[in-house]
Design a protein around this nucleic acid. Structure first.
Lengths: 197, 197
DNA sequence: GCTTAAAATTGCGCGCTGCGCAGTTTTTCT
DNA sequence: AGAAAAACTGCGCAGCGCGCAATTTTAAGC
């Protein structure tokens, strides 16, 4: 990796980190591009060379995390049924996320603008998982919609479970992971269709 | 309904209609709120009393359409299995949409900003369907995430199938409804879980 | 019908955003 | 070292979202 590319990635990280920190501290609405750029040590103009909107910088971190899901599915034993492999991969992924990540997700889910930006990146976010599913099933995602649909369904389960937990279950003391498991088990049958084992 | 409320609804309709027409004609990026307001015979300031963003006005029409899905599910015979009722309700709904509606959906799916706004309204869009599902199953959506999750899964199936069709199948001559049916059948098993018949 | 309160529309103004452009600085390649 | 490529920056502009206060339209009471 070039020095140029490393630097580019570094400023990208610095920008999204700064954006997240400032948003967590002052609330997403009270953060201007100028502040983020200053905190990351670059000019406001440079900020817009990396992110086209204020929300995009904040969402960049969780989006990047979700792009690790493909690797996690590939790490599951090959003889494991597809549905089980998917559920475990997603659950493991979220179990290993620290509390700072959850604070970010909470903020994103509670702010309408951030939530929209997060959903907007769904495609880029799930692409690695789509490819991992396709490979495991021996399918071509361009010919068969199944891998894309399964990945999207898993994402939907996580999203709805998280939302439901935030709005109705959080105060009951039930762990978020329980809600996630419930949601994932509901959509698991989608995977069973192409599971010829 | 008051005269006041009727007038309010009329301008709302006029605004979203004008927004859609202008966007279809000149492309979503080449429409300013000033133009929309002028086309609807209202001041630009009034526009922002109804819609908080340019995209919201365009998406208002399909969002309103999707809010009819609840009614359509209720219209299904009660003895019909939940999964089948859901699939048929959604398929009927889309089968009856005219080509102008599909032009709108196509535009929304192709424009990143519009697509984001559309996803952002998912909650408001699926709420009636959530309630219809909950009623049919005798569940409370605030206690059980299943109705919300099923409604979201159906929405995901429609979204992915449409996207897949637009990007990979459109040119093959396969009807969109076929792709929709395929997607819906994939997620139908989600419904079977709570189908005690 | 006339008056009064409530609600909707409008014009004005402000801060912020996203981006094109052109000039400067930094990195890469030979 | 020197030239080419890429990234950063300052400037400026058009557009947006919205608060505020004034005006017009609608609903309600007598």
């Amino acid at each position: 990796m070039n020095l140029r590319e490393r630097k580019k990635e570094a400023t990208r990280q610095a920008l999204s980190r700064a954006a997240v920190d400032l948003a967590l501290e002052h609330g997403p609405e009270n953060v201007r591009v100028e502040d983020i750029a200053a905190a990351a040590g670059v000019s406001p103009r440079t900020y817009n060379n990396y992110f086209s909107s204020r929300e995009a910088a904040i969402c960049a971190i969780p989006v990047a995390r979700n792009r690790e899901l493909g690797e996690r599915l590939r790490a599951r034993p090959p003889q494991e049924p597809l549905a089980e492999a998917c559920v475990r991969a997603v659950l493991e992924h979220h179990a290993e996320q620290g509390s700072p990540d959850w604070r970010i997700m909470r903020m994103i889910f509670c702010d309408r603008g951030l939530h929209g930006e997060f959903l907007k990146s769904h495609k880029a976010m799930s692409q690695p998982l789509v490819e991992a599913i396709a490979e495991r099933c021996g399918l071509d995602p361009e010919r068969d919609m199944f891998p894309t649909l399964l990945a999207a369904s898993l994402g939907t389960a996580v999203r709805i479970a998280t939302q439901h937990w935030l709005e109705h279950e959080q105060h009951t003391g039930r762990p978020l992971l329980d809600a996630l498991r419930e949601g994932l088990l509901h959509v698991a049958p989608v995977a069973s269709a192409h599971d010829h084992r």
